[in-house]
Amino acid sequence: MQLALFIIFGLLAVLGAFNLLAQKHPINSALSLIVVMMSLAVLYFSLGAEFLAAAQVIVYSGAIMVLFVFVIMLLNAGEEEHTDDSKVASIVGFPGAAAVFCLLTFVFLKEKATLGFSHLESALGGAVSNIVEISHVLFTKLLLPFEVTSILVLVAILGAVVLARKEL
């Protein structure tokens, strides 16, 4: 079951990502990105991280991508014109991406034992909510980073207000 979900939605995520690059119209690209986000959410869910999956859907597909689509619609952006390919990208692109991919695979395989894993069956059958665990860790061990992040977000909001308001 977990393997089937992984294959289907992993493939969907990869196809969505390629489609994002291939599409000429920004709104089609944005929709492909939504497909990628939703597939990632299913993958999180299949790993037993249901809260992360819900947060992924609500925050990324539901809020951030809506804003993307909204801005594209508001600006009425047309199809993008094809420009000359950048030389650097065509030479370094594929080897660079392959190198990053190899590095990530190496790190994950090496640290496999310490990263830990879970199965869908245990997550669905055990009915232990990991929301409780997440909130416990977030408000005890990781309280300082959590609060610092909230200050960061506040600063970002204030910055946006300052940039948007011309007369101050």
């Binding site: 819900a54 859907v57 597909s61 619609m73 909510s129």
Partner: peptide, 25 residues
């Protein structure tokens, strides 16, 4: 019976915006 039932409802509602946004565009 999901233990994130409320979040599921919020998530589905937030996806529903695309129907309206895309129809108009």
């Amino acid at each position: 019976d999901l233990n994130i039932g409320l979040l599921v409802i919020l998530g589905i509602t937030s996806i529903g915006v695309y129907g309206i946004a895309l129809s108009g565009w």
